[in-house]
């Protein structure tokens, strides 16, 4: 058991918990964009930064990764913490001006004007990496990756071409916090990451429900017969 303070209030936590987990449980508001309960933390967006004082040492840490410690003082809304959040939100707003969630968070922090030239080529992607982590560790295919570095970094498939291994499951689009990933089901086909997938039709209700490649992938992984998987969730 660890005991420390958040904004002056005493809190308790289990060893191994992060400051963010404890703060949220205790009702303190810390904004996040790249954090996901199931996928864990990667410390990319930096929005969840808090100020931690330990003895005389004051430092700024990402609460999503920082393990709780006895006797620390955590501040979730100090002057510098607010400055950091505003700065990050203004930077993200300049990068993804059309992202609703970024707009929403920015206005919450009073960031209305962007002092920079707005990007037109980044879409709504804030490079949180949740799609890549989902594809790799939840779906288990690793179709996506980051390419390049610095401001040119982007999420993509190898060589920006349709991926051989992508099964069209769309989990990346579901998990994306900004709605950047384009997925379209039309005319019996799904298009995602420049690849077109034929959708399976449920033999019972005749509904199109999932890409055939995805069902084949599941069948191969689980050993369940493909005919069984062709039946949609509603009819099972």
């Amino acid at each position: 058991m660890k005991e420390f303070k958040i904004n002056g209030r005493k809190v308790q936590a289990e060893k191994g918990e992060t400051v963010l987990e404890v703060a949220r449980r205790e009702g303190f508001d810390i904004p996040t964009l790249c954090y996901h309960e199931k996928l864990g933390s990667d410390g990319r967006c930096r929005l969840c930064i808090v100020e931690v004082q330990r003895g005389n040492r004051r430092r700024f840490v990402t609460s999503c990764l920082y393990p709780v410690e006895n006797g620390i003082d955590v501040y979730t809304d100090s002057k510098d913490v607010i400055l950091i959040r505003k700065t990050i939100l203004e930077l993200l707003l300049a990068r993804c001006p059309s992202s609703d969630i970024v707009q929403h968070l920015a206005s919450e922090y009073g960031v209305h004007d962007v002092r920079y030239t707005k990007d037109v080529d980044k879409g709504k992607c804030i490079l949180c990496g949740q799609c890549i982590r989902t594809c790799e560790s939840i779906v288990g295919v690793s179709a996506l990756c980051m390419s390049g570095k610095g401001p040119a970094k982007k999420v993509t498939t190898p060589f920006d071409e349709p991926s051989e291994v992508c099964i069209g499951c769309g989990a990346c689009a579901v998990v994306c916090p900004t709605g950047h990933i384009y997925i379209e089901d039309r005319g019996g086909y799904r298009t995602i990451w420049r690849k077109k997938f034929e959708l399976a039709r449920c033999p019972q209700c005749n509904r199109l429900h999932a890409p055939i490649e995805q069902l084949e992938f599941i069948s191969k992984k689980t050993g369940v017969d493909i005919d069984e998987l062709l039946i949609c969730q509603n009819c099972k």
């Binding site: 929005l47 990050i88 930077l91 993200l92 490079l127 401001p151």
Partner: peptide
């Protein structure tokens, strides 16, 4: 630094290039 930033975190990737601008 803009060229050499790995691009992982927002402040370095976006902030340094804006300082450069």
């Amino acid at each position: 630094l803009v060229e050499e930033s790995c691009g992982k975190c927002t402040p370095c990737r976006e902030g340094v290039r804006r300082m450069y601008e």
